[in-house]
Design a protein around this nucleic acid. Structure first.
Lengths: 259, 259
DNA sequence: TAGAGTTTTGGAACATGTTCCGAAACTACC
DNA sequence: GGTAGTTTCGGAACATGTTCCAAAACTCTA
């Protein structure tokens, strides 16, 4: 199974501590590498780096749906199934792409104020992820932060550090981070997916028009403005409010007011 | 990878308040009927209700992955492709299932305090959705609340109402709801998906063990406790903190401190 | 140089979601 | 009853992700 411990190392030729594999599962020998310290056997005609590069090429020129295993293999000039010896899954492929992107996250300037530091870090993560339409596909499948690359993990670290600087206990820091992570993932997913039916602006209007104002007065009243309001990017504002709330809660908790 | 191109139309027996639809764009299927006031033509051998029931049957006895179009069709005794005349998509099928579940949301007791009212409503939504493993599949695809059934919408209304009672403007109410919605969706998705590789507890431990404590000290330090801490359900606590923060922010804003 | 061991490779094949398109079945009206 | 219009039905077929399995290619050692 592919894990991400070895973030930062060169993409080809990396072993890494492979988690215990269930027997029977046939996976690419690249990650597992049960034996053979000195590589032997037929040399691969394709490296992981090339795969990722080709994938990006396919995505860049064309829609993101255009990235299929077979097409990617064709782009690389190899058989489709061969790809599965370099990449476990399509999901792993996406993850590689995602990591390639998060690996380029620039650490933002970090303000002194712990609160602002947290906001800056979380916003940086979100901005990096939100840039890639397929991030949602991966996040939806496994939300565990462990799959992020080291630059992203540094931002996680920053969040935790800010929490600690604001007086949070480790437990409280984790709680804070997880909460913010939920918010972030939710924002990316909900925001990045205007593709289902009923999500087009016209459909939204129709939806609100059809609401029964006597049953759902607030919703109906807001309806006409919903689309406009939703268009505004208020992620950072929500984030700030959330951080404030969480920090205040943590402080309360420390005072023993609410165990 | 759910697509959306579909030119045909899916027949339904019960009409309902149909928003004006262009050909091809359908809300959730229980609309349409472009012509034919008096139904004519061959009567369907299967109703939507039967489809949903059969789908639930398949899910209940067996894994959720066991629900495939062909199997469902077989269960119903019809051809696989026939199903596509009743349901536009597999996604729509999931949506039907989801709605059937949210339609049974019981309105919780609503406290007087606006803040607690909001918390209660949001928690009810989350609990209802979190109960269904496939909710994530749908939410990940289209987050628009318009796809929820009316009982769920009533909870949305409650949130908006609580916000208003706390003094929020409509704009602020929307902001508050959206923020909470992001948080909720994120929680459901991240929490409901321990299935990717690397998400097993053992893998998590391995992940944290591999962290470089000199680069990511906080993360490494927390590591050992992460799994335990993550296991605790603190959704409501986070929610409460969020609401507090958002309400405070709204009030600040109203005072003109931060436009 | 001849294995032996190991790795890479890819064709065939399967399950699934989905579309095409023609045939069947039914209602309404003449 | 017959015909037109409309609806439902479903087999064939396609793209995709994925696994099986056996052959090919390479390195190392004897």
């Amino acid at each position: 199974m592919f894990r991400n411990y070895h973030a930062g190392r060169s993409p080809v030729e990396r072993g890494g501590p492979a988690p215990p594999q269930r027997a029977g599962a046939r996976h690419d020998g690249r990650v597992t590498r049960t034996k053979t310290p000195g590589r032997t056997g037929r040399p691969p005609v394709t490296s992981r780096a090339q795969i990722v590069a080709a994938a990006r090429r396919l995505i860049d020129e064309g829609t993101w749906e255009g990235l299929t295993i077979r097409r990617l293999a064709a782009e690389l000039g190899i058989g489709a199934t061969t790809l599965y010896h370099h990449v476990r899954d399509k999901e792993e492929l996406l993850l590689l792409l995602l990591n390639e992107c998060t690996d380029q996250i620039a650490l933002p300037e970090l303000p002194e104020d712990p609160r602002e530091r947290i906001v800056a870090a979380a916003t940086a993560i979100r901005d990096a992820l939100a840039e890639w339409p397929w991030a949602a596909e991966v996040l939806a499948v496994d939300g565990f932060i462990g799959r992020l690359g080291e630059p992203a993990l540094k931002l996680v670290e920053t969040v935790l550090d800010g929490a600690a600087a604001a007086g949070c206990s480790p437990e409280q820091s984790v709680h804070l981070f997880r909460s913010l992570w939920y918010y972030t993932v939710g924002e990316i997913l909900v925001r990045a997916e205007p593709k289902g039916p009923g999500t087009a602006p016209a459909d939204r209007d129709a939806f609100f028009d059809a609401l029964d104002a006597s049953v759902l007065p607030r919703l109906a009243a807001i309806g006409e403005r919903w689309t406009d309001l939703a268009a505004r990017d208020r992620f950072a504002e929500g984030l700030r409010a959330f951080v404030d709330g969480l920090l205040a809660q943590a402080e309360e908790e420390r005072k023993g007011n609410r165990p």
